[in-house]
Design a protein around this nucleic acid. Structure first.
Lengths: 159, 159
DNA sequence: TATTGTTATACTCTATAACTATA
DNA sequence: TATAGTTATAGAGTATAACAATA
């Protein structure tokens, strides 16, 4: 069959297996010096990447989970002072979730640890290969999203 | 900072988010024509990739989960006739888990769907880029494993 | 005594359904 | 009436602890 294709799929699977481990998440939070569960980290990093306050629904869409899940974790993060909620001035039903200073610090730490893991793995790679990886993985994510999109839409609209 | 590095990390995160969705798994099993939960699929495909019967412990290690988890799912797969257990001739404590014909068919279907998704996303890519992606992703998986390994060992031995 | 696996249990993650409030 | 979010509940996924059996 297609050798390259099979190699790509297998490589992806191996990466996913490594990163999905509970132990890996423990390692991440330990290195980052935070006590956060996985959804907490995802939410904080999403807000950090966005660079501005986000609504619950937008966060859920980014993470591709249902909104009650986000509601619960945001409530917990709020109690711990890592995010704060502000009424959306344009829509009284909606809130914006904003990182507090402490929340932003935690998010930065977590994001940095992940980045450092990749950096560590890529040590010794030629700059050309590093650039190629970035280009191709970015393209793959983009094209995979487009390819899977019709399916995603179909399941959503089937609700 | 390092533009390429950040792009790589973000692209990986987007891919992981897509594939971790429950809906994506539903789509996979529907397309494959099987009724299997996620761990079931992982176990069957692992056995298929291995090409020969495997012990519970080896499966757990491949998937990087704890063995009771594998025990439970293998028991269920066995009841459904997708795998069968054979005493390991070399070690009376151990079993080998083998795919039945039906189990192998299910595994092939599931693996094919995933492969087709990648194939679909890569449609329109030049053969050179496809080969480069395979080479670089494979190398990334390998190097990431080596990089994270000391940490993995540390947590394992800390048991 | 060390290793392989199982049973029992509990926790984490996430979905669905029913509801509230604002538009 | 449609939309944004919450509350309540349940189910999947996986870990830990205690145990059994064989080496």
């Amino acid at each position: 069959m297609d050798q390259d294709l099979q190699r790509t799929v297998n490589a992806y699977r191996r990466l996913a297996t490594m990163f999905n481990r509970a132990k890996t998440h423990e390692r991440l939070t330990e290195a980052a010096g935070v006590r956060l569960d996985r959804p907490d980290v995802q939410i904080l990093v999403t807000l950090l990447d966005a660079g501005e306050p986000r609504r619950i629904g937008m966060i859920a869409e980014s993470l591709q989970v249902e909104s009650p899940h986000v509601t619960r974790h945001v409530a917990s993060l709020e109690r711990r002072g890592l995010v704060q909620r502000v009424r959306d001035p344009d829509d009284g039903r909606a809130w914006r979730i904003a990182l507090t200073e402490e929340g932003a610090e935690a998010a930065v730490s977590c994001r940095r640890v992940t980045t450092e893991w990749f950096e560590g793995a890529l040590t010794g790679w030629s700059p050309a290969d590093q650039a190629e990886l970035a280009r191709l993985l970015d393209k793959l994510a983009e094209d995979m999203f487009e390819h899977l999109k019709p399916q995603l839409d179909r399941t959503s609209s089937a609700k």
